[in-house]
Nucleic acid binder design. Structure first.
Lengths: 165, 165
DNA sequence: TATTGTTATACTCTATAACTATA
DNA sequence: TATAGTTATAGAGTATAACAATA
C-alpha cells in the first residue's frame, strides 16, 4: 500500500535508530510526504504532480518547447509527449508549431488551462501549507535557501552530469 | 534518460521562473539528486538504496521482523519479501523464525552482510558528502532539524494517515 | 548529419488481492 | 478471526531505441 521508502506522518515508528540522523533519509521522507499531499490536493482537478508542472510551465510567460519542458523537469522527451497529449486532449494546452523551427512545438496554455491552473495552484499551495505546517515563515525561507544549495548550487568543478536515479 | 521531475546539477536551466521559490519543487529536486548520488555510490556493491536500507536495519541492534521493516521503510510487506529474498540469496541476511511467534521472521545480518554494510555505509556517506558539499556542518544540522519537522513532527491533530504517492 | 517529436518495447516499481501457516 | 509472510498480477513509471519530418 505504501510507496516510497519514506511516507506517512507521525505514528511512533519502531527502532528507527540512526536513520533519523540521516539527511538523505529525512530528505526522502519529507519529499514523499510533500508529494503525497500535493497529489491528493491535485487529484480532484484531474492533475498529477507531473501534469501540474507541465501546465505551470505552459502558463509561464516565456514560450517553451517540449524539449525545454523535458530539460526543466528532467524527464525524457518521450515522457513529455504523453503528458502533453493528455493535457491537450482535455483542452488545457495547445501544441503550436514554432514558425522559426518547424520541428519544435511550443506548448501554450489555453484559457481553460489557465483557469484550471489558478485552481490547481491554490490547491498545491494549500497542500504545501499542510505538509509544512510546523515551519515558521522564517524557517521556510531558511529551508528554501539550504535546499537551493543542494538542488542548484552544486560546485561546477565537481560532478560531471549525474542523471537522476 | 532522466527520471524524476527534478534531477541533475547546475547547468543553467531555461526559464525556471517561480519554481525556484517553490519548496516542494526544491525538495523534490534535492531528493532526486541525493538519491542519484546514493544509487551511483551503492551500485558497485550490488546494492540499491532500498536494499541498503534493509541491510542497515538488519545490522541494527534491535531485531526486526519483516513487518517492522515494512513499517519503517513505508513499503508494502510484499515488497520486503523480494528485497530480503535478494539479500538472503547473496548470503547477506538470514530469516530467523521468531520462536515466540512462529509466523514472524526476524531479519538478521550475516557476517558477510555486516562486512558489506560497513563498505556500503562509507559509500553512502561519501555520496551524501558529495551532494551536500555546499552545506557547512551548521547548515546540515539546521537542515536536519527542519526536515525532521516535516517528516516526523506532524501535528497529531491534523492528517489521518496519508499514504505516500 | 543532427535534432524534434513520436512510437514502441522492455524493465522496474507500485498497488492489490489472494493464499498458507500460524495465532 | 486475525496476522505474518508469500505469491501473483495489473498498472504506473522509467529507460532505450528506432522512426518521420525538419534543419
Amino acid at each position: 500500500m505504501p510507496t516510497d521508502a519514506t511516507g506517512g506522518p507521525s505514528r511512533a515508528l519502531p527502532a528507527l535508530g540512526a536513520l533519523t540522523e540521516d539527511l538523505s533519509f529525512l530528505l526522502a521522507r519529507a519529499n514523499a510526504l510533500a508529494l503525497a499531499a500535493a497529489h491528493a490536493a491535485l487529484a480532484p482537478l484531474g492533475l498529477k504532480v507531473r501534469s501540474y508542472a507541465v501546465l505551470t510551465l505552459a502558463c509561464a510567460a516565456a514560450a517553451q518547447t517540449q524539449r525545454d519542458l523535458a530539460e526543466i523537469l528532467r524527464l525524457d522527451p518521450s515522457q513529455i509527449v504523453s503528458l502533453v497529449d493528455d493535457l491537450e486532449k482535455r483542452g488545457l494546452v495547445q501544441r503550436q508549431t514554432d514558425p522559426s523551427d518547424r520541428r519544435s512545438k511550443v506548448i501554450a496554455a489555453t484559457e481553460a488551462g489557465r483557469a484550471l491552473h489558478v485552481e490547481a495552484s491554490a490547491a498545491a499551495r494549500r497542500a504545501e501549507e499542510e505538509s509544512h505546517a510546523r515551519l515558521t515563515e522564517d524557517e521556510r525561507r531558511t529551508l528554501g535557501e539550504l535546499l537551493r544549495k543542494i538542488a542548484f548550487d552544486e560546485d561546477p568543478g565537481s560532478a560531471g552530469g549525474e542523471t537522476a536515479s
